[in-house]
């Protein structure tokens, strides 16, 4: 039996109102028709290149987009719509963000106090991450990268979060450190949290996550099981297949072209200009997700 869905996002779109020249305003759509859901006890990786809207998704869920952003679509947490008010209450408690960098911590406050004012609880959670008690007495700038990562994880654990959103937690880390960080997230999921892991490093994510949502130009093209990445044939969307082929150990073969950017998105399928399966149907209209072999894919021709 499948666990309950903690967070579901459907038909999400985010656009920014920008001034182009002088007083002309235009809406720049950066996320369109985006669908994901994550269940209790699982890690969903959100993978895509920079500019595919991964970080914006996190900001949209947490309700921390800038003022000129316009959000449409449905975000539900435990079945109920996640309104701005509701998320403000849950943020930092049931819903936790493990941010990209140290910059999210208060540089003038000792890290122990920032994790929690309750000292004994901090000690317990630090012990779990093999952090010495004395680390709590340090300031953020005194921590090494690896320590920092563990402190940030500790913050999520101590709040007893049911939904953890990790935004690019590993870039610049060595393989070992990155593996260790991923293990921490796996443990959190095994204890019942739902984890959304935003990353561009598919290769690393594969070993630890349950499902992978592949982002392209602000939309989800496919949600695949991690095991589908064992071979190209198990994958569904042409873009996912192209990704697979470009991974160093799978051949390092690039596909031509670049991701279209907000403001000049093609009509219909966003990947069509680079796609080998492209047909007439691809040129018009949004493509609804279809279920194929236990995964979801937005493509007319995927099989």
């Amino acid at each position: 039996m499948e666990n309950e869905v903690v967070l579901s996002v459907s038909g999400l779109s985010v656009s920014f109102r920008m001034y182009t020249k002088g007083l002309e305003r235009r809406e720049l759509k950066v996320i369109s028709n985006l669908n994901i859901n994550v269940r209790k006890g699982e890690i969903l990786a959100v993978a895509g290149s920079s500019g595919s809207g991964k970080s914006l998704l996190a900001h949209a869920i947490l309700g921390i987009l800038p003022k000129n952003a316009v959000v449409e679509g449905d975000i539900r947490y435990l079945g109920e719509p996640l309104t701005k008010k509701r998320v403000a209450k849950l943020r930092g408690g049931e819903i936790a963000l493990v941010p990209q960098s140290v910059e999210y911590l208060d540089p003038l406050m000792k890290v122990g106090r920032q994790v929690s004012p309750d000292e004994s609880a901090v000690e317990k959670v630090f012990a779990r991450y093999k952090l010495d008690k004395s680390v709590g007495k340090l300031f953020p700038f005194q921590l090494s990268g690896g320590m920092m990562r563990r402190v940030l994880c500790a913050t999520a654990v101590i709040s007893g979060a049911k939904l953890i959103i990790a935004d690019e937690p590993t870039p610049g880390m060595s393989k070992e450190l990155a593996d260790r960080a991923m293990k921490h997230f796996r443990d959190l999921a095994n204890e019942g949290a739902a984890v959304i892991l935003i990353t561009h490093d598919i290769d690393l994510a594969l070993g630890y996550t349950d499902r992978i949502a592949v982002f392209y130009a602000g939309t989800t093209v496919e949600t695949a099981l991690a095991s589908d990445f064992d071979s190209e044939d198990k994958l569904r969307h042409p873009y996912t297949k192209a990704l697979w082929r470009a991974i160093p150990k799978n051949g390092f073969r690039p596909t031509e072209g670049t991701q279209p950017y907000a403001g000049s998105l093609p009509d219909g399928c966003l990947f069509a200009p680079r796609c080998e399966l492209k047909g007439e149907k691809c040129a018009c209209g949004a493509i609804e997700p279809r279920n194929i072999r236990g995964g979801e894919v937005c493509c007319h021709y995927a099989a």
């Binding site: 993978a47 895509g48 290149s49 920079s50 595919s52 870039p171 610049g172 561009h200 598919i202 290769d203 192209a242 990704l243 470009a246 991974i247 160093p248 390092f252 073969r253 690039p254 596909t255 031509e256 670049t258």
Partner: peptide, 17 residues
């Protein structure tokens, strides 16, 4: 210096090629 670390795998392969 880690010139493709922040890029997705397709772009990484393109840039190196």
């Amino acid at each position: 210096d880690e010139m493709s670390t922040m890029l997705d795998v397709i772009t990484q392969a393109q840039i190196w090629e």
